[in-house]
Design a protein around this nucleic acid. Structure first.
Lengths: 220, 220
DNA sequence: ATGCAAAAATGCACGACATGCAAAATTACG
DNA sequence: CGTAATTTTGCATGTCGTGCATTTTTGCAT
């Protein structure tokens, strides 16, 4: 029931602002405590206390304890969808998606600090990493819908929502959305382990080149 | 003292047999109860009672309640790796992987009855579907290693383990392994929703055709 | 500012999940 | 048959998550 609709635009009322502040405080407390004492040693009570609210209030904001650790930047996926739909009409879907993701990832590289903290927590808690995949899958559905919309309006026409898009997307949109998510995950993972050797932009480009080429056997 | 280390070997002592029987009984009871009353309405107590053991014993076999619903056929991933490595040398990696997965999925289709039951449970419980993804991700690492090994021995030589393979796989093996897992997931997901319209084999083939073609914009 | 209605926070009770520990039951083996 | 190893079980404990009624805070009109 805490869907936090698209009204993330700067809050007008005091209520909205306070709600987001509380939510942010809970999430930040959760991550900081997890980074210090280990994720599974952090109780809801500790998180709530650190955020200055009651335990019951915690569950008013998060459906489960683990949800406080996962990053749900709902704006990011929306930006990617918009950038994808706004790409030049002639561009193939995979290329349009590559550009949209690249732009968003460049943007995300600015908050490198908080991102790194989350990464450390998730690395030591595979259980939470699975949760993140769940969030990623939720985005997948929306992205698949956007892909279906763009394909439907393959010509230069303006892609707008229609009832047909709301229905279950076809196989191709789903596959492309899922593969794109996988590509991001793998590239980030690979780059994190060899950050000194290569730039992320290069890894990202190589991954999408491989996908566009049909994953051919690499030259030896 | 016979070899008999793997617990998947048939027979053995009465103890081993009873343990596997209990585990199977718990898993089956969990799925059947979930299919009837809904996954989140099935308590550990009910599962244990249906299997004829105590609640405590349930947790001796499964780390969590949800684990009773996920399929953890650990032998399956090993079979896929072996089939992949045993594929004709000339075959491109993606094709070899396609064949290996197809063979395993055909094998799994024999227990179509139980599998279909699982599918229904997972469809109504996205939470459990994520659990299955977690198991899939665990396999990803081992599969990436096998891919690296096969590529290293690109000629007809016998692919055997080496120290180099134990190291972190390169970008390509990881990507291929991850994309393959994603392909399986998407195809299963898509098929589950339209089981009446198309056969799974067709969906599976189409997905890999799309991947091999570089995910081109579909004809309209 | 003041009173009122809507929304949020809180306390409390309750059931389910999950783990550790020790006793009892079952199995393996000489 | 007797002993050791393994498994099962009950019990205690702590945490998770939810429903409900109550209190507090906020928005708004007067």
């Amino acid at each position: 029931m805490h869907v936090m609709t698209g009204k993330d635009a700067v809050g007008g009322g005091l209520r909205e602002r306070k709600k987001r502040a509380t939510r942010a405080a809970l999430a930040e407390a959760a991550v900081r405590l997890a980074a210090e004492h280990g994720a599974d040693q952090v109780t809801v009570e500790a998180i709530s206390a650190a955020a200055g609210v009651s335990v019951r209030t915690f569950f008013n904001y998060f459906d489960s304890r683990d949800d406080a650790f996962v990053v749900v930047d709902s704006d990011a996926s929306e930006r990617v969808r918009q950038a994808f739909l706004a790409a030049p009409p002639g561009l193939p879907p995979l290329e349009a998606l590559r550009e949209a993701l690249a732009a968003e990832l460049r943007e995300a590289e600015r908050q490198h600090e908080l991102w790194s903290l989350h990464a450390r927590v998730l690395r030591s808690a595979p259980h939470l990493l699975v949760r993140n995949l769940g969030a990623q899958m939720a985005d997948e559905s929306g992205l698949a819908e956007a892909i279906a919309r763009r394909i439907r309006a393959g010509d230069g026409s303006v892609p707008s929502e229609s009832d047909a898009d709301r229905a279950t997307p076809g196989l191709y949109p789903r596959l492309l959305a899922a593969v794109a998510g996988t590509a991001v995950r793998v590239s980030v993972q690979h780059w994190c382990e060899r950050a000194d050797e290569v730039s992320y932009a290069d890894v990202f480009r190589e991954v999408f080149d491989l996908l566009a080429a049909g994953l051919p056997a690499p030259a030896r």
